[in-house]
Each structure stands twice: as structure tokens, then as C-alpha cells.
Design a protein around this nucleic acid. Structure first.
Lengths: 117, 117
DNA sequence: CGGTATCCACATAGATACTG
DNA sequence: CAGTATCTATGTGGATACCG
């Protein structure tokens, strides 16, 4: 993986740049979950059933660094941390919607779109 | 990676299913290249500057198995093999277009969309 | 609760050389 | 030209335990 580093970093291709961001096993699913609104760490951990806390933490940090996700902490006991999407992140939801549409047409039906009218 | 195997294979979520297909370092870029029409192996190898023949071969086989890509061979000397998109593959281009649009808005400009009118 | 630390497994991809 | 074979590198993620 590591789509960013090698040669694609210099690439001007917007497809390659977007691919570099949304690649990675959980990234798209985290954004999908945050699309419906602000979530806490443990909420994400459950809805992404199977993800390890380490991986979730890493993905969230990366997304934060890329300006996709906002991390809001509250000095409470017990501690509370809320994750949400930035404008840049919200806009990524359009890509996810596009994927959802494709998935419904080709991957979650037994007939191709052309036969479903 | 291997987004397909573990738990997501059973997932009904069309986003997860689409993610499983387009994940992988080169997949989206191969489809991007084939979107503009039929290509030969060496053409792809050059336009995906840096990809190893082994990796390209593997990705193309996978895409063929998933019904995204068609492999057409000609019994000529020297041998000729042409790759193109199936209808299912062509439709994926809508997702790529969506990514391109996002990339232009957020990743290939120095100003956010809201400031560009 | 919301993580981090550590160690480990595995898939994916690169380099290089070679073949029908 | 269009690959395959082999061997290696590394990233990416999982398991588990523990910490503020």
C-alpha cells in the first residue's frame, strides 16, 4: 500500500490523490460512519465490528492530520472524545454515496442494473 | 488489506463491498487508465509508471475474476493482449469521476471549493 | 472511557531475472 | 510483447495487555 509516498505524491492526477487518501482497509468505513454525525471512540469501535483499538486510533489520527476528521476532547471523568468530519471530510461523503450507489447496482443484487429497469 | 475476506464479505453494506473491490494500491488507477479505452499490457505498465509486471499482472487477473476487466488475447507474433472494461467496470468509472471531482476540489488546488466560487 | 505499547502475522508489492 | 518465478521488503492490521 502506502499509495502516497513513492511516485504518486508528485502526481497531479486527482484520482490518484483521492485514492491515496481513501485507500486503507478501514478509512472509507470510518468516514461512512461519521457521515451520519459525530461519534465517540467506542461507538466507532463497535460499529466497525472487528477493528482493533490500535488500528482505529491510527486511522483516526491519519484522517485528522489530513484534515478530514476533527477530534474534540472534553476534560471530564470518565474522559470523552468525539470525532466528526470537517468540511473536507463531509465532501468525501459524495464519493461514498457514489460507491454506495455502485455497490447497490452491482454487488448487493443478483441482477445487473440493465435487467432491473 | 484483504478487505474482502474477514468479516466484510458477509457485510450487506454496499459501501463496504465497493471498498473491498477498489482497495489495493493500483486497482483504481488501472481502471482509470482503461476508462479511456482498451489498453495493452505494456501501455498500462508505462502509464502506471513504477508498477512491476508482477503486480500489474496480478491486479489484472483479480479484476478479470471480479468481472471488471476483459482480457482479449490474439494469437499473433509478437503476442498481443488487450484489456478493456466490462459493463460492470465501465460503471465503476462513475466512482472514479466522483473521486476526480473531489480531488480537484480538495487535493489539487490550494484553495478550498468554498473560496473558489 | 479512550486510548498506547509491544509483538506478531500476513497480504501486498518491489527487484530482478528469465521464458513462450 | 506479455508475461512468470523467486525472493525479499514493508506496510498494514490483529491480539493482547496495560495506562491516564
Amino acid at each position: 500500500m502506502e499509495l502516497t509516498k513513492n511516485h504518486l505524491d508528485d502526481a497531479v492526477c486527482p484520482v490518484a490523490r483521492t485514492a491515496a487518501i481513501i485507500s486503507g482497509k478501514w478509512t472509507l468505513l470510518i468516514i461512512r460512519d461519521l457521515a451520519s454525525g459525530l461519534k465517540r471512540f467506542h461507538q466507532l469501535e463497535r460499529s466497525l465490528c472487528g477493528i482493533s483499538p490500535k488500528t482505529l486510533s491510527e486511522r483516526l489520527r491519519s484522517l485528522e492530520e489530513e484534515g478530514i476528521v476533527i477530534r474534540q476532547t472534553y476534560a471530564e471523568v470518565p474522559p470523552r472524545v468525539e470525532y466528526s468530519l470537517t468540511e473536507k471530510g463531509q465532501d468525501l461523503v459524495s464519493v461514498i454515496d457514489c460507491m454506495r450507489s455502485y455497490g447497490k447496482r452491482w454487488l448487493c443484487q443478483d441482477k445487473p442494473a440493465s435487467e432491473r429497469g
